[in-house]
Each structure stands twice: as structure tokens, then as C-alpha cells.
Design a protein around this nucleic acid. Structure first.
Lengths: 147, 147
DNA sequence: ATAATTAAAGACAAAGTTATCTTTAATTAT
DNA sequence: ATAATTAAAGATAACTTTGTCTTTAATTAT
């Protein structure tokens, strides 16, 4: 559904939300290892989420690393998608038409519209914090490694 | 949601279903123009749908071109997706985890599962014929061109 | 101040997707 | 048979995504 970059962004953000605090920042190495992603690529991706502490926060130097503010934890998943430029996926129609609309619907429009709305609402209502809590509570997992 | 190749495959198949018959085959040029796709690339894509008349049929030479059998018109949209190798999209989890399952669900699993099931069932029940008929009946459109 | 540590920034490489162009093969009409 | 027409097949190019590596900048500790 999303690009690898966005998948890594989602996993990284959830991991950071679960494990970090201002006094316990996480290195890019720890994050990448935990979410099973390439270190340098993940570093690049997190740079899309840090400017202006948009989603996560970073500080350089010793004792530095990544963390997320309590405020940002309350952001919906959609905030990550927007930062990753994935919002068009939730606009596009199944057939990739430029002009698919209520007035000129593609033949999948009416059914897909409803499903897409559920997706949007899932990403709009689910917060980063909720996802992290599910993992903390042991009812969800972030294990990616094959085997 | 799908690759450009798959979008073109879907549009082309629907167009062929709507306009062609065994006695009125369509050239790749007409198809590509109608669905607003690059001619040669579309030709390549249709080669994925023709072997064994899997989804559409093709004959070479004068009076040749593409058409679809009445039998194939009854195929579900999913047949196109399978031919295009897109089936993994409907398996993958939102976070791209290799091991997301009922036993070890990712934190989006339970909600996404339901939405994904609706998508699968849409692609499973909707037939090529139904899509073509919606266009024929004027209640749906295949217009892609910007403007 | 200096050294050490960490993310940011930038250049680059590998792989995948999208797209084009040329040649070949099949079919039809003459 | 020959020429004309059409899709199939193959080579290649452009672009995007994914990934790596090196250098720079910020921060901390000594």
C-alpha cells in the first residue's frame, strides 16, 4: 500500500514513540536495528519527519538521538503520511484516472469511495500514541525479521 | 494503490470489453489512445494478459488486434491483478512487516484487516463485464486526459 | 580548546519501474 | 509467392525508488 520509505517511517515513529523520551533518546542505529531497516536510508527518511519537530525530534552530539514529544504522540498516523508525501494515494482512483469524480466516476468509483473513506478515517483517528501503547501492552508487535 | 502498469491493464481491459468483439478487434494504437497511455508500454503490458487467452485475446496480422471473449468478460477484476502480479498488495500489512499475522499482529492489523477484506471482495466480485456495462450505460466513464 | 559522538547533508550507486524503438513472427489480401 | 498489417519479442533508455558512503555541523564531555 505504501512505499518502503513510508513503511520505515511508520515503523520508526512507532518504535520511537514506544521506547524514547527526552532523557532517553534513541540512536539511528538502534532504531534501524529494531525495525529491520537499512540504517542510512532510515536516517534519510527520518530527516523528513524532524524539521520543525513536525513528527519526531532529533538532537545531534553525544547523548543525542531521536525522541518524540508528548504532543507529537497525539498526532494521527496521517501526519506521518503527509510528511512522507503519501497523501496522493488516498486521492487516487483505482484506475489511475486524472478526472475521476462524483460527476465523472470511473466504474469502480462508487464502491471504492466507501472503502477509501474507511482508510482515511483509520489514518485520521489512530494516533501514534495508540499504536505504541498497543505494542507496550503486548497486544501488537513490530517484528519484521523473516525467519 | 496499483502501479501504472496495472492501472493501464485495468483501463485497457475495460475498454476492450466495452468496444471489441471477435469481429471487431482493436489495435494497440486505438486502445492506448482511448485510455491515454503510452502505446509501446501498453503493448508490453497487454502481453501479460494475452498468453493462453488468460484475460484478453490477440491475433496478429491484418484485421488482427485485441478482443475479449464472453467467457473472459465474466472474470473478476482480480484476474487482471493476478496476471499483473499485484496480488501481494492485498497480502501486505500497512507497516510492511513480514510476520504480521493474527498471532503476531501489527498495531494496525485488526482495523486494516477489515478494510482489506472489503477490497479483496470488491475485486473478487466485480467482473470485467460489469465495469464495461457501467460505461456503456453512461453511469461510469474512462476519461483520463487532463484538461 | 580539543576530542568524541551524534544527526544532517550531499554525492553516489544499485535496483526497479516506466517508456521507447527496432526487429521478428504471424496473418491476411493481392 | 509477395506485400501489407498487426502483435510479440528484445534491446535499450529515462526516471524513480531504494540504498550506501563520505563529509559536515551540532552538541557534549574532558
Amino acid at each position: 500500500m505504501f512505499s518502503k520509505a513510508t513503511e520505515y517511517a511508520l515503523r520508526a515513529t512507532i518504535y520511537i514513540a514506544q521506547k524514547s523520551s527526552v532523557d532517553n533518546k534513541l540512536s539511528i542505529h538502534e532504531i534501524a536495528k529494531a525495525i529491520d531497516s537499512p540504517v542510512s536510508f532510515t536516517a534519510k527518511i527520518l530527516q523528513l519527519l524532524t524539521p520543525g519537530n513536525k513528527v519526531i525530534s532529533a538532537v545531534r552530539g553525544p547523548k543525542g538521538g531521536f525522541y518524540i514529544t508528548e504532543q507529537s504522540k497525539k498526532l494521527p498516523v496521517r501526519a506521518i503520511l503527509i510528511a512522507m508525501g503519501e497523501s496522493k494515494i488516498l486521492d487516487k482512483c483505482v484506475l489511475g484516472l486524472n478526472k475521476c469524480s462524483e460527476a465523472k466516476p470511473c466504474p469502480m468509483h462508487s464502491q471504492y469511495k466507501n472503502i477509501k473513506q474507511q482508510l482515511i478515517s483509520l489514518f485520521e483517528t489512530k494516533t501514534i500514541q495508540q499504536l505504541a501503547e498497543d505494542i507496550d501492552g503486548g497486544i501488537a508487535f513490530l517484528n519484521s525479521k523473516k525467519g
